[in-house]
Nucleic acid binder design. Structure first.
Length: 703
DNA sequence: GAGCCTCGAGTTCC
DNA sequence: CTCGAGGCTC
């Protein structure tokens, strides 16, 4: 069976540990079974069934049980060996020096660092009065450990960890990793084994998955999984297409090479040999220093280009390391200090289907609330029907939920082993809804080649009407302050507002009668509605919610046609003359204005007093120093809001775009600028601060 | 026809 | 913010 071919059902799932008071022996046996099964899925099949945090939890449960009842500690217990197994098809490699695992400090608070320091000092019989100990702190990469064997400076073999004693020869795949030198710089030692982690960068992982999706191939759950799969390919040409990276962090067998006296010096020496060593490391003394490192890296965890699951502390001095030695298979002088999990398991309670503004029907996972990545998550989008089926998510399943940083929570996959007997059917959107919109019961349809199902009800569908109203009133369009979703719900459900023009017929008495609406709020809202009547043609066009017509296109159309009448009557060929308007947009516009109901809405809005100045004539003789220039805004400017800055740039004839490319003339960066700033720098696009922008607007004015 | 550059649209939580 | 897709360019 090729490693990528996952057939979980071949493996009988082990009985889960019973939570009821079971005899400890039976409990330990059940835990051992379960852990063996999970470890096999993780290490050998590259198909983890549960998040790491869950494995760790079961592992610790077994450890605790064995500590309490030492008689239960069998030689084959997962706690007694480093996990993994040799796969058929690869040549086994016996490690000259065993590849050990590292003890995990599971306390994710600063306390974890203090406990490690205290243990080390106790073992060394140091007192408060002794000098502090130097520690080397590094990142704990989320990849897989590899041993590289160099003889006379030449890479002769690369092996996985396997069970720690014997791994697999994966030299053919490792040689495809460009970062790993095939020959060391200035080193001809007879034997030098370098250990480190093969991993996949997040951007490489995303690109790989995008490629897999495009080919309709199965995507990978996470970067580590993808990296492990690549390293275990029997065919190295496949591995070569998987973008892997490497960091060195330790040694195996060494002959004829002077090992530096400290770990930090060793890392420097490895870097000098031409091996990639992560720059994110430090030498610290005291537990406080370690705790600070842990917190500092934790704060930046999401912005690192690769996944980590914690940091690693090592006693820096090799002589001290030797004095500390090992306990069973783990060094006493090193520890991994983890971070809270970004993945958790929870149960899928149901699948709701939402109706969007355009009628798009989106399946949303209703989850048993779970704390992951710093917040409690109870909803997660399933995007669309295909996506939901691809993951085979069913109601009642235990699912893995991930949330990293600002990323929207997502359902990564299903724990098939825990699928209950009474699990729901495979997701079928049409069947679920009996072909009807869940809100208005209009027929639903999915056009050829489209991913999404849509409600055909249009504005007769209350859900779409509500979204249309919210869209119309939003800040970048008609800007009606105070018209939020709660109010829109009441207005539409109470049939007070049936169409956009109804908004302008609202009276004080009908408003004040609503829930949570006092005299003051009603007056303010009416004032906001009144104010919104004075707008621009561009905003008005955008606010109508015509498919494929967003802010930017609406502005282009307004500028090109000048008046609404000319636009409404324009033929498709005339519409195509507008820059950035192609057949799809042109037909969408034509289709919209061909419907009498839409023309009527426009008519009524104007009758209600909605008006705008003619676009023609706006092309005044005001100086336009930024004519033809494209700018990108990023971060927070000290005194200008994003919209203000944008308005100023547009008034000067410039265009504000959302993404940086080589066509961008300037990037205006404020504080907390993100990836756009990096991109500007890598493309050599000039970067301005607010003062620079003002100078550009003003300075060119005289020219 | 491929690849790049934008724009449009959807989405979660506090 | 990110993905998908429309439009433009080569």
């Amino acid at each position: 069976m090729p490693p990528s071919d996952i057939q979980l059902d071949l493996f009988v799932s082990a009985p889960a540990a019973a939570p009821e008071p079971t005899p400890p022996a039976a409990q330990a046996a059940a835990l051992r079974e379960r852990l063996h099964h999970l470890a096999h899925a993780y290490h050998v099949q590259d198909a983890p069934e549960v998040p790491d945090a869950e494995y760790d939890r079961l592992f610790q449960q077994l450890q605790a049980l064995e500590a309490e009842h030492p008689a239960l500690r069998t030689p084959d217990s997962p706690t007694q060996r480093v996990l993994g197994a040799v796969l058929e098809g690869f040549t086994p490699v016996r490690h000259a020096v065993p590849m050990l695992s590292i003890r995990t400090e599971t306390d994710t608070t600063a306390q974890g660092a203090h406990e490690f320091d205290a243990r080390v000092r106790r073992e060394l019989k140091l007192t408060e009065n002794d000098a502090p100990i130097d520690y080397s702190a590094e990142l704990k990469f989320d990849g897989l450990a590899i041993n590289l064997r160099y003889e006379a400076g030449v890479l002769v073999q690369a092996a996985t960890r396997g069970d720690g004693e014997t791994g697999e020869d994966v030299t053919h795949n490792i040689r495809t990793i460009g970062q790993i030198p095939l020959r060391l710089l200035g080193c001809t030692a007879p034997v030098l084994e370098v250990r480190g982690e093969v991993y996949m960068r997040r951007d490489d992982f995303e690109a790989l998955n995008a490629r897999q999706r495009a080919l309709n191939e199965k995507t990978f759950v996470n970067p580590r999984n993808a990296a492990a799969g690549a390293v275990r390919q029997l065919d190295s040409s496949i591995a070569a297409q998987r973008p892997l990276s490497f960091f060195a962090y330790g040694l195996g067998e060494v002959q004829g090479w002077d090992i530096p006296a400290t770990h930090s010096a060793l890392l420097d020496a490895l870097a000098a040999l031409g091996l990639p060593v992560c720059a994110e490391r430090a030498v610290l003394e005291s537990a406080d220093g370690l705790a600070t490192f842990h917190a500092r890296i934790g704060a930046r965890r999401d912005t690192l280009p690769f996944d980590i699951d914690g940091v690693v502390y090592k006693v820096n001095d090799r002589a001290l390391q030797e004095r500390l030695g090992f306990v069973t298979r783990e060094p006493r002088w090193a520890v991994a200090h983890k971070y809270p999990a970004q993945e958790q398991m929870t149960r899928l309670l149901g699948i709701d289907i939402q109706v969007g503004r355009t009628g798009k029907l989106t399946p949303v996972a209703k989850l048993e609330p779970v704390f992951v990545g710093g917040t409690t998550v109870s909803n997660a989008t399933l995007h669309n029907e295909d996506e939901t089926r691809r993951k085979d998510v069913r109601v009642g399943d235990v699912v893995i939920v991930r949330r990293a940083g600002d990323v929207i929570p997502e359902v990564v996959g299903v724990v098939l082993a825990d699928r209950p007997a009474d699990v729901g059917e495979p997701f079928d959107l049409y069947k679920r809804l009996s072909g009807q919109c869940p809100v208005c019961a209009s027929p639903i349809e999915r056009e050829e080649g489209e991913v999404d199902w849509r409600c055909t009800g249009g504005l007769t569908c209350p859900a779409q009407r509500k979204q249309a109203l919210l869209h119309f009133a939003s800040r970048r369009m008609m800007d009606i302050e105070g018209l939020g979703d709660k109010l829109v719900d009441q207005l539409v459900d109470g049939q007070i507002v049936r169409s956009l023009p109804d908004l302008y017929k609202l009276g004080f008495t009908s408003l004040a009668a609503l829930e949570r609406m006092g005299d003051k709020s009603a007056t303010n809202l009416l004032a906001a509605i009144e104010k919104s009547k004075h707008t621009t043609l561009g905003r008005f066009l955008f606010s109508l919610g015509i498919r494929h017509v967003g802010e930017s296109t609406a502005k282009d159309l307004a500028r090109h046609f000048g008046t609404l009448e000319r636009l409404m009557d324009a033929r498709v060929e005339e519409l195509l003359e507008v820059p950035d308007v192609g057949p799809v947009v042109a037909n969408s516009l034509r289709h919209f204005f061909d419907q009498p109901i839409h023309r009527e809405v426009v008519e009524q809005l104007r009758a209600a007093g909605v008006c705008w100045p003619d676009e023609i004539g706006l092309a005044s003789d005001a100086p336009r120093p930024l004519l033809g220039k494209t700018l990108v805004l990023t971060g927070t400017l000290p005194s200008l809001s994003r919209d203000e800055a944008k308005a100023m740039i547009e008034a000067a004839g410039g265009k504000v775009s959302g993404s940086v490319s080589k066509k961008t003339h300037y990037v205006v960066a404020g504080s907390e600028a993100g990836s756009k700033l990096d991109k500007a720098q890598s493309l050599g696009v000039p970067v301005l601060d607010e003062a620079g922008l003002r100078a550009l607007l003003a300075g060119a004015e005289g020219a």
